[in-house]
């Protein structure tokens, strides 16, 4: 399955950042975008340590958060350790982190910068 989570976009007309992919800019209605590369570092905006997990995940808990990359892209991802705080600087790693129905799934894994 083609997952549309590996690229972020900037609207050619108004500059609004879009992630994940959509076909029309929410701000100005333009349909033209340029690819916006992710930066290596980001800031943790919020997170939760989640204990009751859905079918298909065998971990005792997961820490999942939302980070803002230094160029404005915001994305959800897994966090490597639970001892984090809002505002922490994080290293953003694009990783293979699970399988769903036998399919490899890649996504963001955030790691606190020491």
């Amino acid at each position: 399955m083609k997952r549309k989570n590996d690229k972020a976009y900037k609207c050619k007309k108004c500059g609004r950042v879009t992630y994940p992919e959509r076909v029309v800019c929410l701000k100005c209605g333009s349909r033209e975008f340029t690819v916006l590369p992710f930066t290596n570092e980001c800031t943790l905006l919020t997170f939760s340590q989640i204990f009751q997990l859905p079918w298909g995940i065998n971990d005792r808990y997961l820490t999942i958060g939302v980070c803002q990359f230094d160029n404005g892209i915001k994305a959800m991802g897994r966090i490597t350790i639970p001892e984090v705080k809002n505002g922490m600087r994080m290293k953003a790693n694009w990783k293979l982190f699970r399988q769903i129905a036998g399919e490899d799934v890649w996504g963001w894994v955030f790691e606190p910068i020491k």
Binding site: R3, K4, N5, Y19, P20, L45, T46, F47, S48, Q49, I50, Q52, L53, P54, W55, G56, I57, D59, L62, I64, G65, V66, A75, M76, G77, R78, N86, R98, I100, V105, G107
Partner: peptide, 30 residues
């Protein structure tokens, strides 16, 4: 829990194992 989580974005949220309680937890945190 998995069924309700299917209402999240399939490629940018659901894949991480997010749940509706998890969304509410992140919201509550802020």
């Amino acid at each position: 829990t998995d069924f309700v989580a299917t209402l999240t974005h399939p490629d940018a949220e659901y894949i991480y194992g997010i749940t509706l309680p998890g969304m509410a937890g992140m919201f509550a945190n802020l």
